[in-house]
Design a protein around this nucleic acid. Structure first.
Lengths: 187, 187
DNA sequence: CACTTAACGCGAACATCTTCGCGTCAACGG
DNA sequence: CCGTTGACGCGAAGATGTTCGCGTTAAGTG
């Protein structure tokens, strides 16, 4: 008794999704995120409003898909063998992602998930942390003594998020990485 | 031509506000914050729905008032003259506030403000930072060399917020303060 | 103690959001 | 190439959310 249902992700379905996500991208750059509605997305994309509810359930659900799609396309974590350089590269990317329109989009969807409006985070959004963990594992395999993932999140990532949350100027990513290495000398 | 309008904050108006805020407190402890509605607040408090819209404009507006009221009542920043102890005390309070139901409430309202749904943050919510700044100023006046407010936010406060945002276990407040002092030796 | 009018209760009207059933089209498998 | 049926378009119905005008109450003032 296999309860596997058939699905048809190709052809028209894929085209509809692409149209919708493009419409979300356009609309979020044209106006404040707060006044975006599903009706707008329907009109702009040419996809029927009922379809949006059927596939994504809610505006937050759609935005979650959209932001996951965007961040997946972005640059993955690099591993040059130089931990300091890789961390700076990573911090720089996070700061960049959070500063643009994607920052508020990510903030909104993260809160929606935490508040229970939306289901679990899609794997695409936690992939960066997996990659970072792999980076640390490889450094350890080389005989280095890297910081833990939580230390990186605390010292480097967290200040970038709170700057976004409070609307203040974020501390320079390079400064944040320096702090981490000062707290955790890798010798 | 004075455009000062008369207002009547006393008596019935104050009683209505108290009833409404109490209803919000009750409801937020009984159910997920995501499914709270103004209609529920109206029914529970006995205040007419139209009045809620008139006074607070939206659910987020009401929640902003509620959370500001709550955090104002809470313990202010202490100044015992021992910077390390005062910082730990402060970090402990922040961690406590964020861990309870108030945490999600604060998160939601902060994001609402940042996304433009709500107006500026009420002074009550930024008061702690003013008090902390005053604490640092006094320490400096005593001849000490305290960290800056931004350093405190980055190293101590930010990790507590991201733990809430990501749903992870927050780092011990004492550990966070130790990090700050390690980065910024006060001698 | 009067008088003015801000603030509220009330309910209907209005707007927006969400769901649903049905017919059609085309993706996928054989 | 044919058959099955998942996904979509469509529009109406239903549910929620928001505003408005009017009458009533009581806070603040002289």
């Amino acid at each position: 008794m296999s309860d596997q249902r058939q699905s048809r992700p190709g052809g028209r379905t894929a085209r509809v999704r692409a149209d919708v996500l493009r419409a979300v991208d356009d609309l979020t750059t044209e106006q404040p995120l707060a006044q975006l509605t599903l009706a707008q997305v329907a009109e702009r994309s040419g996809v029927h409003l009922g379809t949006l509810y059927r596939r994504w359930g809610s505006l937050d659900g759609l935005l979650l898909d959209a932001v996951a799609e965007r961040l997946t396309v972005r640059s993955p974590v690099r591993d040059t063998g130089n931990l300091h350089a890789d961390l700076e590269d990573y911090a720089h990317h996070v700061a960049e992602d959070l500063s643009g329109p994607d920052g508020k989009l990510l903030l909104r969807t993260l809160v929606a998930v935490r508040l229970g409006t939306q289901a679990q985070l899609p794997p695409a959004l936690t992939r960066r942390y997996d990659e970072m963990q792999a980076l640390l594992d490889r450094a350890r395999a080389r005989g280095e003594n890297p910081p833990t993932l939580q230390q990186i999140v605390d010292v480097v990532v967290a200040p970038l998020y709170t700057a976004l949350l409070f609307g203040t100027t974020p501390t320079n990513p390079a400064t944040l990485v320096d702090r981490l290495l000062k707290l955790h000398p890798d010798q």
